[in-house]
Deep mutational scan, measured.
Amino acid sequence: MPVRRGHVAPQNTFLDTIIRKFEGQSRKFIIANARVENCAVIYCNDGFCELCGYSRAEVMQRPCTCDFLHGPRTQRRAAAQIAQALLGAEERKVEIAFYRKDGSCFLCLVDVVPVKNEDGAVIMFILNFEVVMEKDMVGSPAHDTNHRGPPTSWLAPGRAKTFRLKLPALLALTARESSVRSGGAGGAGAPGAVVVDVDLTPAAPSSESLALDEVTAMDNHVAGLGPAEERRALVGPGSPPRSAPGQLPSPRAHSLNPDASGSSCSLARTRSRESCASVRRASSADDIEAMRAGVLPPPPRHASTGAMHPLRSGLLNSTSDSDLVRYRTISKIPQITLNFVDLKGDPFLASPTSDREIIAPKIKERTHNVTEKVTQVLSLGADVLPEYKLQAPRIHRWTILHYSPFKAVWDWLILLLVIYTAVFTPYSAAFLLKETEEGPPATECGYACQPLAVVDLIVDIMFIVDILINFRTTYVNANEEVVSHPGRIAVHYFKGWFLIDMVAAIPFDLLI
């Protein structure tokens, strides 16, 4: 008679799926529990143990900040960024110097990925580790590398530091407007667009060049630039800015003055950032001319202004700041037409079709709590990747769950009947059967004279019903998954307890 339990259901295979997918890609990662103190490590794979030199037993239950890997060259700011990422709910990448158990130093890129439950609360953290440099290539500990984003994938490793954006290309926007319009339909740009040429040739750093990471940081200074100062900065030398009595002219307006920039070969870094931020506020060169004239017309309804409409929906549905990093990277690809469009465009503009998908598509409701890094690593669709929660398995109709209350009560009843059979069957065979043979035949009273025979008949009927119930009862397979398919249940029961239950259900007393 089957006594099969499996009270692990309803099970959740999400954690096993993450481990299996990460292991298949030869990654070095740990999984931490966000619900406990210090976000203790609950799993670390073999790749991480080989990377740091510690065994799994030495890593388990330690804080996922990996303070046991810190050393003299470990930056405090990087460690603080990892700790801050564990307090938030967004994906974050941090470069930090770690030390192995043998004392060797290596520069590592740590990717902190939160995993949320159905309520939107962070319950786990996945920390992925990628070695960037070994100890002989690690720089000085005073050099802070965590304020910069990861290198873009479309640049060669040897040319990542030679990417320079020439400031004269930004200063000569109005001069290039006529050349853009003359391109017409034969050019790649839309009317009114501004073409910015980027020099990728390796050259020595000069005062006129600005690194790509500095251009990325310009967006942080746009908020500090007032509207009046932006307007004066875009007017140009024809209309000098008016300053109040006793007030000095704005240095932001002076930063885009061609006369002032041409007199000296070098520009201050602050002026460069502010000038680029001011130019980015204009949607095209037409807006710059309109600002000089004193009238700013409404933005025209053409394809170039609607190019950012799908980007707005993608940004609203993005799951991490990696989408913004990807957008900034692609927006700086050289030799393309940049349409400086305000994100607050007309909502009635139709979304044009684009061959290049900048932001990841909208994630469906079932995966809105899973970050983009987890979705990318697992390579699963929205119909396959579940949320991290207890999910009731989908069972067929008329199927009994093996952990249901009805099955528990039924098993206790069958257990009592088995005990009765084990006690009274030998007793009936030894004593009652002998008395029946010696006594007179009682054929007239039937079952009324033999109450134990009636009980034995009921017990046999219950055993037959138990066999039928076992054909529709779920079970737990070797992978700790609840199986509810009727065919698989029948095959599993035939290979197991079916023969024993059938022999126990045969009414031998009635056959004798």
Rank of each mutant, 00 (worst) to 15 (best):
G6D: 07
G6R: 01
H7K: 06
H7R: 07
H7I: 08
A9Q: 15
Q11W: 07
Q11A: 15
N12G: 15
F14L: 07
L15H: 04
D16G: 13
K21C: 13
K21Y: 11
K21F: 04
E23N: 06
G24C: 09
Q25Y: 08
Q25V: 07
S26P: 07
S26M: 07
R27E: 04
F29G: 01
I30N: 01
I31E: 01
A32I: 01
N33M: 06
E37A: 14
N38Q: 10
A40D: 10
A40M: 15
A40C: 11
V41S: 01
V41L: 04
Y43P: 01
C44E: 01
N45F: 01
D46G: 05
D46I: 03
G47A: 11
F48D: 01
F48W: 13
C49V: 14
L51I: 07
C52K: 01
C52D: 01
S55A: 06
S55F: 01
R56H: 01
R56F: 01
A57M: 12
Q61P: 01
Q61K: 07
P63E: 14
C64I: 09
C66T: 01
F68L: 01
G71K: 01
R73M: 06
T74H: 01
Q75V: 05
Q75S: 14
Q75M: 05
R77L: 13
A78Y: 01
A79C: 08
A79N: 01
A79P: 01
A80L: 12
Q81D: 15
E90I: 08
E91A: 10
E91W: 13
E91P: 11
E91M: 09
R92A: 13
K93R: 13
E95Y: 05
I96K: 01
A97M: 09
F98E: 01
Y99P: 01
K101A: 05
K101I: 01
D102E: 07
G103N: 08
G103E: 14
S104Q: 09
C105N: 07
F106S: 01
L109G: 15
N117E: 07
E118A: 11
E118V: 09
V122F: 03
I126S: 06
N128R: 06
N128W: 06
F129A: 01
E130T: 15
M133L: 13
E134W: 05
D136K: 15
V138I: 07
G139V: 13
G139S: 15
S140V: 07
S140P: 15
P141S: 06
P141G: 11
A142Y: 05
A142G: 11
H143L: 06
H143S: 09
H143C: 15
H147A: 11
R148Q: 07
G149E: 10
G149W: 06
S153M: 04
S153G: 09
W154T: 11
W154Y: 07
W154F: 12
W154H: 10
P157Q: 06
P157I: 09
G158L: 14
A160D: 14
A160F: 15
K166E: 09
L167C: 15
P168E: 13
A169Q: 06
L170W: 10
L171Q: 15
L171W: 13
L171Y: 10
L173N: 12
T174V: 10
T174F: 13
A175C: 09
A175G: 15
A175W: 03
R176V: 03
S178N: 15
S178V: 06
V180E: 05
R181L: 08
G184C: 06
G184E: 06
A185W: 03
G186K: 04
G186Q: 15
G187Y: 06
G187C: 05
G187E: 15
G189L: 15
G189H: 06
A190D: 15
G192L: 03
G192M: 03
A193E: 10
V196R: 01
V196T: 01
D197K: 03
V198K: 03
L200A: 15
T201D: 07
P202N: 12
A204K: 15
P205I: 06
S207H: 15
S209G: 13
L210P: 07
L210Q: 13
L212Q: 05
E214V: 06
M218E: 12
M218L: 06
D219C: 06
D219M: 05
D219A: 05
N220F: 05
H221V: 10
V222L: 11
A223E: 09
G224I: 06
L225C: 09
L225I: 03
L225H: 06
P227H: 01
G236A: 12
G236I: 08
P237F: 07
G238H: 14
P240G: 09
P240A: 15
P241D: 11
P241C: 15
R242L: 12
S243F: 05
S243N: 09
A244D: 12
A244Y: 09
Q247R: 06
Q247E: 15
L248D: 13
S250V: 15
R252S: 14
R252H: 13
A253D: 06
H254K: 13
P258F: 08
P258Y: 09
P258K: 03
S261P: 13
S261K: 04
G262D: 10
G262E: 07
S264D: 04
C265L: 08
C265I: 12
S266F: 07
L267H: 11
A268Q: 15
A268M: 06
R269E: 15
R271L: 09
R271F: 15
S272R: 08
R273P: 12
C276Y: 03
C276I: 13
A277P: 07
A277H: 12
A277G: 08
S284H: 08
D286K: 05
D286Q: 14
I288D: 13
I288F: 14
M291V: 14
M291N: 07
M291H: 15
R292N: 14
A293D: 04
G294N: 15
G294L: 12
P297M: 05
P298E: 09
P298L: 07
P299A: 04
P300Q: 03
P300T: 06
R301S: 15
R301T: 11
H302C: 11
A303Y: 13
S304W: 14
T305P: 12
G306Q: 07
A307W: 14
A307K: 06
M308L: 07
H309Q: 08
H309D: 14
P310N: 07
L311Y: 09
G314V: 07
G314E: 09
L315R: 09
L315W: 03
L316D: 15
L316G: 11
S318A: 08
D321M: 15
S322V: 13
S322R: 09
S322C: 07
D323R: 07
L324S: 12
L324G: 07
R326D: 13
R326E: 09
R328I: 04
R328G: 14
T329C: 08
T329F: 03
I330E: 08
I330Y: 14
Q335E: 12
T337R: 12
T337E: 15
L338F: 09
F340H: 14
V341P: 15
L343T: 15
D346A: 07
P347K: 10
P347D: 04
P347I: 04
S351G: 08
P352F: 04
D355I: 12
D355H: 14
R356L: 09
E357S: 12
I358P: 12
I359S: 11
I359R: 15
A360F: 03
I363F: 05
I363S: 08
K364R: 14
E365T: 11
R366Y: 08
R366P: 07
R366V: 11
T367S: 11
T367D: 12
N369H: 03
N369R: 08
V370F: 15
T371L: 10
E372H: 15
K373F: 14
K373A: 12
V374P: 01
V374I: 13
Q376W: 01
Q376I: 01
V377D: 03
V377G: 04
A382L: 05
L385Y: 07
L385P: 10
P386N: 04
